[in-house]
């Protein structure tokens, strides 16, 4: 993510989700894992103007870039939180990238991965660990 910090900010970090250290969230339902970026990520980016997502059918490895998100000011890679095949892509974001700012956990979702290794979800950060991760980065900046 872009360097910098909010001096005063509150982030909507949801307990029912898991998070990557690169600020993606995942929602696992069976072997289907929906992926988006967290409220922290969208606030750090600011106004999102462009989202580039992979084609359905592409295989991704955990930790590998699967797309790109651009705000007015910044370009950031999107990283696959788990390995598997991309089975759905939120094509609507091509026309309405601002959905990432407005509803990052809903309409701003990005892809669905059919995961090949469910344990990768368990290895992601839970809500408390992710909040701690955000706090540590803010502290580093100070």
């Amino acid at each position: 993510m872009q360097e910098g910090r909010w001096a005063v900010a509150e982030y909507d970090i949801r307990a029912e989700l898991r998070y990557s250290r690169e600020d993606e969230w995942v929602r696992a339902e069976g072997d289907r894992v929906t992926v988006g970026v967290s409220d922290y990520a969208q606030q750090q980016l600011g106004d999102v103007v462009f989202v580039e997502l992979p084609e359905v059918g592409r295989t991704v490895d955990a930790g590998e870039p699967f797309g790109v998100i651009e705000s007015v000011k910044t370009v950031a890679d999107l990283y696959a939180p788990v390995s598997g095949e991309v089975v759905e892509v939120n094509d609507v974001l091509a026309e309405t990238p601002e959905a990432v700012n407005e509803d990052c956990y809903g309409d701003g979702w990005m892809i669905v991965i059919a995961t090949s290794d469910a344990s990768e979800v368990e290895a992601l950060l839970d809500v408390e660990a992710y909040k701690q991760h955000i706090k540590e980065r803010a502290d580093q900046d100070h």
Partner: peptide
Amino acid sequence: GARMVPFAGFDMPVQYRSI
């Protein structure tokens, strides 16, 4: 509540709400 970034050796606001 500005988001602050280093710029030319200063800690400066890059945005407050939305660019």
